[in-house]
Write a protein that binds this DNA or RNA. Structure first.
Length: 264
DNA sequence: ATGGTCGTTACACGA
């Protein structure tokens, strides 16, 4: 079973590229971030005709997340439990494959947090704390659980092309890296680094020719509970999706690329 | 040397 995450930066602007990727990558489950539309504006039909059940936690202009699954989904949650939030940044559901054990899948769009310090940074700190608490509570159930998405956190210096230049950025500040380590210390494991033993990026800014210079960041992650990690088979990053020369030339790429993992 | 991001929205903001 293949589970993917992708910050698409507008479902409307990106639709042809997204559908091409779905037809090629064929994820069983995919969480999308920054869909930038309300629930009713999400093009559910395009995914339903490909066999997906569609769950949306939308928001106009900013944010918005979705959960797509070829398998039945139950217990859908919108928003981080216990965290009052006007912004649509989290969706979760329990996926029931026909011939495998179920797995709870969370789709995350963490606040960016810039500029730091300031109210946006404070919001990010509060969100990270609430998400950590939700992860901790979820782990008590001791079943397969993962949170995939745009964490907006660079884990280590290997995850940024210019660590010194980014040291005060909300994506790389010590408090953000600490928050991610706190999640890992709960017992969660990051899927891609477990199997890919080299640095990698998942985001390249639109500005400054970042893609051509490979000025990337590693900010999209899949964190797995021990029970999910035990079932991990493969994991990867579809970096080609960032290349304007590859794929649908009429549609510009997202600044993020899909990150995925497969489970037995 | 020149211009040098994108998406949504509306003439600015967030990333």
């Amino acid at each position: 079973m293949k589970i993917a995450t992708w910050n698409v930066n507008s479902i409307k602007a990106r639709k042809p590229r997204i559908l091409d990727w779905f037809d090629d990558a064929k994820p069983d489950v995919c969480v999308l971030q920054e869909i930038k539309c309300v629930d009713d504006a999400f093009p559910a039909g395009d995914f339903e005709e490909r066999g997906y059940n569609v769950f949306v936690h939308g928001q106009k202009t900013y944010n918005g997340v979705a959960l797509l699954s070829k398998h039945p989904v139950e217990d859908v949650i919108r928003g981080v439990p216990g965290f009052e939030d006007e912004q649509s940044r989290y969706i979760q559901g329990t996926v029931f494959p026909e011939d495998q054990e179920p797995i709870r899948v969370g789709g995350l769009y963490m606040p960016n947090g810039n500029p730091a310090p300031g109210p946006k940074w404070e919001y990010k700190l509060a969100f990270m704390e609430a998400l950590t608490r939700h992860m901790e509570e979820s782990l008590e159930d001791e079943d397969a659980f993962l949170v995939a998405g745009d964490y907006n956190i660079i884990p280590t210096a290997e995850g940024v092309y210019d660590p010194i230049g980014w040291k005060d950025d909300a994506l790389f500040r010590p408090e953000a890296r600490e928050a991610l380590r706190r999640m890992l210390n709960l017992g969660l494991t990051s899927a891609v680094p477990t199997l890919l033993h080299e640095p990698y990026y998942t985001f390249w800014d639109y500005q400054g020719g970042a893609w051509k210079k490979n000025n990337g960041l590693c900010i999209d992650h899949i964190l797995m509970s021990p029970e999910a990690a035990d079932r991990l088979e493969e994991a990867g990053v579809d970096a080609d999706a960032r290349d304007p020369e590859v794929g649908n030339g009429d549609t510009k790429p997202s600044d993020h690329v899909p990150v995925w993992a497969t489970f037995e």
